[in-house]
């Protein structure tokens, strides 16, 4: 009845709302935690103390180097056909505009294909992408590649409709990439509303002119840490079940949902197991990644350092898609392993959360999954998640303590049982 004990403690017992309260304290104290920022390093130090104070074992910080880009003053104003201030957020790693800004006519397109078809019109313009939202993985291509594709056809800057499932005039940010040999141009996201408005204007043949000013700055890479804590295994201590979330966030809102929720339910999983006096046969390792938003930079260096032990990792878990009410566990692994995970998830029947779905993944754990280690991630209401993702709305106000309790219970049961089974999860 260990599973019931974990569920009772997390959802009905004295640990109720603990992960929510811990998260609120951190994000209210520190705020957003952009890669390379002092906020992030402050959060890492606070978590280091938290994990020690919680009595977890082998608490340590593993040094890594991470990108350091900072947002400066930024503004976009539509000058024609009328004056309209455009809410915007520069994209991570974007270059700045000249001091006087870029004032240019706009070309509105709804896809890369349309941009190609109308390439001859793009030279010297600001390209506005009004791409429809399909799902995050498909639509994010416009955020990450928008500047490169626009620069290839001679554009001066790109403004991209926020990758969001819903908008209340809320711009979203995120990382974007330049490409060797292609001129770097400033790039930012605008709101769904403004992208759609300019699309309508363009369809009526109205000329649109925007003045864009961005004072972003890229610094040399900064020092940072992945934060690690454990419950050392009682029988196979060298074997590991890794449970994780990322401590960095974008520089908007509080980073409570992305990925404060994942961090704190992962910590809560170890706290629940420790509170019950349990010690699994394998080591349960909590890792709080740094610089995930820049492409899993901290996690990649952790993988490089620890991959020598890849055969000792039974399961890697990352929660980085929200901690609203879970609908199931996403899993990647062999059929045998999946069958075992279905049995493990059946222990969560009391919460009626027993589904095992495909596509277990996480930017920070994908390195291990590609090396053959079974991987798991928490699935919840992704439609709601992308309302707030990478926007000023990512605050404690979207978090729900009861839902976090349930998410923590799922995370704790799965990680503990897999860590305590006599055999590791099979890979063939």
């Amino acid at each position: 009845d260990i599973a019931k004990a974990i569920i009772n403690l997390a959802v009905y017992g004295k640990a109720q709302n603990r992960s929510y309260e811990r998260l609120a304290l951190l994000v209210d104290t520190v705020g957003p935690r952009l890669s390379g920022s002092k906020n992030l390093e402050k959060a890492i130090q606070i978590m280091y103390q938290n994990l020690q104070r919680d009595g977890l074992e082998n608490v340590h910080l593993e040094p890594v180097r991470i990108p350091h880009w900072e947002r400066g003053e930024e503004s976009a104003v539509m000058l024609e056909p009328r004056t309209h201030k455009i809410a915007m957020l520069g994209l991570g790693s974007s270059i700045r505009t000249p001091p006087e800004g870029i004032t240019a006519e706009v070309l509105v397109v709804t896809s890369f294909d349309e941009l190609q078809r109308r390439a001859s019109e793009a030279r010297g313009k600001i390209v506005v992408y009004n791409q429809p939202y399909v799902n995050y993985s498909k639509t994010v291509q416009y955020r990450t590649q928008g500047a490169v594709e626009a620069a290839k056809v001679g554009a001066l800057a790109s403004l991209i409709r926020s990758v969001a499932s819903f908008s209340i005039y809320s711009p979203h940010t995120g990382i974007q990439e330049y490409q060797d040999g292609v001129p770097k141009i400033p790039t930012a996201c605008i709101t769904v509303e403004d992208a759609e408005m300019m699309s309508r204007m363009a369809a009526r043949g109205i000329k649109i002119v925007i003045q864009l000013k961005m004072v972003e700055k890229t610094y040399p890479d900064a020092d940072s840490f992945n934060t690690v804590a454990e419950i050392t295994g009682s029988k196979y201590p060298e074997q590991v079940v890794l449970v994780s979330g990322h401590l960095d966030s974008w520089d908007v809102g509080q980073g409570a949902m992305d990925d404060g929720g994942g961090v704190f339910i992962s910590w809560e999983a170890l706290s629940l197991i420790k509170d019950l006096g349990l010690r699994p046969k394998r080591t349960l390792r909590l890792v709080l990644w740094t610089a995930e938003e820049q492409g899993g930079i901290g996690a990649f260096q952790y993988y490089q350092l620890h991959k020598v032990n890849v055969s000792n990792y039974s399961l890697v878990m990352e929660s980085d898609a929200g901690t609203f009410l879970p609908t199931g566990l996403q899993f990647t692994g062999s059929e045998k392993a999946r069958a075992i995970m279905e049995e493990v998830m059946s222990l969560l029947q009391p919460l009626n959360i027993t589904q095992v779905l495909s596509h277990g993944e996480g930017t920070d754990i994908n390195f291990w999954i590609q090396a053959g280690v079974p991987g798991a991630s928490l699935l919840d209401d992704l439609y709601k998640y992308f309302f707030f993702h990478h926007s000023y709305g990512d605050t404690m106000t979207v978090m729900d303590p009861k839902q976090m309790n349930v998410a923590a219970a799922v995370w704790a049961v799965v990680s503990y049982v897999v860590a305590d089974m006599e055999e590791m999860l099979p890979r063939s």
């Binding site: 055969s311 039974s314 049995e343 049961v413 049982v417 006599e422 055999e423 099979p426 063939s428």
Partner: peptide, 24 residues
């Protein structure tokens, strides 16, 4: 030692099921 990677499990799936059930 417990079996990992491409090793051969020493247990039948039924035994693994019963082991997991013991946590419930």
């Amino acid at each position: 030692k417990s079996i990992y990677k491409n090793g051969i499990s020493k247990r039948t799936f039924q035994e693994i099921k019963e082991e997991i059930a013991s946590y419930g």
